[in-house]
Nucleic acid binder design. Structure first.
Lengths: 212, 212
DNA sequence: GTGCGATGTATCGGTCCGATACATCGCGGC
DNA sequence: GCCGCGATGTATCGGACCGATACATCGCAC
């Protein structure tokens, strides 16, 4: 998951660890709290060893006069390689059952702008099925095993069930939108393209109807 | 977390691993998918080593005639010890910041019937604060950094924000209920008590008002 | 001038997951 | 009569990720 997210983010622009964590936190804020350095740095080294990313020389940027006086310690900037982009595409194409759990889905969804429409649809439907299963499980427990459980546990299940129903509806909307959508998307620029292109994804569910 | 859940469950009755997993799944179905054996069994051995639980001889139960013919392999039944109950109480009392993340909160909430009212309130309020912080973070991103993010990422944040607001309202209700509540609760039976007592917890939020 | 919060890199132990292996039991189909 | 198959049941291994911790630098306010 982290591997996927890093490769996805580095495609937008090169970054160093700290920055990466902040961007990750911003992009995945709805999904998980904050990436731990204890997983970030080891993963970066793993990706580098695999050749998906490389260290880029810290650019002096504009003509800022901050050169060799302080010898420039720290600040390792990473950029994605061609192999890395390929790897990212491969990870998207693989999108299997493990993609449908809470974290996996969230991370993939966050990079839907770089995902082709067919895969988006596949992921959304896989996720929906998974949530529907969870929903059925909760309904079962609330129905059949209700008297075995205390009021607090039941309340927890109810709240969970509510969240499931809500998410299914949300996914339903996204799927409908995706199907009907002309869906331009995927500003994918060939493997050797320039950096910092502007992303122009399709508009997801903008419908605000009160009664379904 | 797993340690806490196991100690909590074994207080209801002795169980073997498989059963424990099923009960755990039923009780925590709203929180997490299913406990992996890869964590369950090692944890059981850890708890046993610490003296919180012991292996109980597989009871032949009633006068069922299934005795020593097949030598009875497998089926290791665990029961909680007095130390284990003490440990569980201690874990409840400690309930700190780590108790407020998604999983931690869910697991603690599932055992609120064995938690005193003051601690319940503390946990609910801690959780609320945490969710409020997450909510503010999401609002910030949706406000300030909106144009930097693609439509899918924004939609993810919106959905997350919605879930946060909903959970805060839910917690609000629970807290109000808890404060006003006569709150009998805690069928805690002294350390050497009998098994299989009936749990009679207080009624959590039963209010179903359409407009807040 | 000095402390302090933000920036920044890095490691370590521990928890938990997913895949996998393997053994037994009861039941229905052939 | 027996054979497979799904449920029951215990167990391990490698890997992902977290939380705590350590440490170094920079800019700014007091």
């Amino acid at each position: 998951m982290l591997e996927f997210a890093i490769l996805g983010l580095l495609q937008e622009s090169p970054m160093h660890g700290y920055e990466l964590r902040k961007e990750l936190t911003a992009k995945l804020g709805a999904i998980r709290a904050a990436i731990s350095y204890g997983s970030l740095y080891p993963t970066l080294r793993r990706l580098q060893a695999a050749g998906w990313i490389t260290e880029a020389a810290e650019t002096p940027a504009t003509a800022e006069e901050v050169p060799a006086l302080t010898s420039r310690r720290g600040r390792v900037v990473y950029k994605i390689t061609a192999d890395g982009k390929e790897r990212f595409a491969q990870l998207i194409a693989q999108a299997g059952p493990e993609t449908y759990d809470d974290t996996g889905f969230g991370v993939h969804f966050a990079f839907f702008a770089r995902t082709d429409q067919a895969t988006r649809l596949r992921i959304l439907e896989g996720r929906r099925r998974k949530i529907e299963e969870r929903r059925e499980g909760l309904r079962d427990v609330l129905g059949r095993a209700a008297e075995r459980l205390d009021a607090y546990t039941l309340e927890l299940q109810r709240h969970g069930l509510d969240a499931c129903e809500r998410e299914v509806r949300w996914l339903e909307e996204l799927i409908a939108n995706e199907r009907s959508g002309r869906a331009p998307t995927v500003p994918n620029i060939g493997t050797a393209g320039g950096r910092r292109e502007d992303n122009s994804p399709p508009p997801p569910g903008e419908t605000r109807n009160e009664r379904p």
